[in-house]
Design a protein around this nucleic acid. Structure first.
Lengths: 189, 189
DNA sequence: GTCTATACAAAGATAGAC
DNA sequence: GTCTATCTTTGTATAGAC
């Protein structure tokens, strides 16, 4: 595996566990097994490393979500289930939250370039969820009590918040409980 | 106003805007108008300052929530409305999120004493919300699709997440939209 | 209770050899 | 592409005067 990718992996892992400000070049270098100044050859600044981490994360999610949408005869309930997947995995793994949830928590301390990427991540997800929910409502699969966009924001916020609260309270299967209740809220009473 | 209280105010403000790791003695001292080493007279370490900030925050919320519960002939819908209040205010103010939401985002980088306080904050809120929802369900005011505790966790997570997403996307009245939909989810279809 | 001065470590970043 | 060495700034904390 290329050094640049291993650096991205290490940086992402630290941010998801400890936050952006707690991620230092030295920590990242030690995880990869090289010395601190060698990082600069791959990423000139910490902000550049951070930005690259989010861009890769956004792209990974973007492809996964586009892949779900592209399926013919898609089951929209199943599509939503796929969406929950990565968040459930993060919670069961423990100690890690969504990369962008972590970054957004330190928003006021972030470089501008990173703030922009984080904002785009959330908008991406809201847009995708809104589309799924709107289709589902039209097909009669979902019975929405509010606007599709509103439900999309609730799902996104609840998952991000659930990961954060779950880690701090160490409650088992916390995100799963939240996801189950969110699903119930989409099928009427 | 006592210096110790002004230090707590300043530290809390920075944590809510930028996070715990971005909060330095020097920043706090400058906001209060004293020099960095003078803080030590009031709080021996950064961890002690941080812990004191959360303890005050927990106590403030604790008293407010107990006050709502203590009201005779309480309207449970109104009680929930009161609960949403501080989160709506934070969102409208902009740039700040819940103190404990911010800290929980950096959980892996926090001193043990602070982790404990953050966990207690969330448990406090879950317990209070569960009680309100359970009573409401018994009285027929709320029609819950899941367990009261489950709804409590959803409300807490959604509000914490909404503040974080709202700040990163700069969407107007974001938390209000989430709160409205959460309320709809408690009254059946 | 606040100050100046200072110790000490860690951080992001640069220069130049290999 | 990685290294050693170094610079500069910042951060937490201490010592001791006022």
């Amino acid at each position: 595996m290329k050094t640049a990718d291993r650096l991205l992996d290490a940086a992402q892992d630290i941010i998801q566990r400890q936050g952006y400000n707690a991620m230092s070049f030295d920590d990242v270098a030690k995880m990869v097994g090289i010395k601190k100044p060698s990082i600069v050859h791959h990423f000139p600044t910490k902000a550049a490393l951070g930005k690259a981490v989010i861009q890769r994360y956004r792209e990974m999610f973007g492809q996964a979500l586009a892949g779900i949408l592209a399926q013919p005869d898609q089951d929209l309930r199943q599509a939503l289930e796929f969406y929950f997947g990565p968040f459930l995995e993060l919670d069961e793994k423990g100690n890690s939250i969504c990369l962008c949830g972590s970054l957004a928590g330190e928003f006021g301390a972030l470089p501008d370039a990173i703030r922009t990427e984080v904002g785009l991540f959330f908008v991406d997800h809201q847009t995708w969820l809104t589309l799924i929910l709107k289709r589902g409502a039209e097909e009669g699969i979902f019975q929405l009590s509010g606007q599709p966009n509103q439900h999309a924001c609730l799902i996104l916020s609840a998952l991000q918040g659930a990961l954060i609260v779950s880690r701090a309270t160490a409650a088992p299967h916390y995100v799963q409980q939240i996801a189950d209740l969110l699903k119930k809220g989409l099928v009427g009473t």
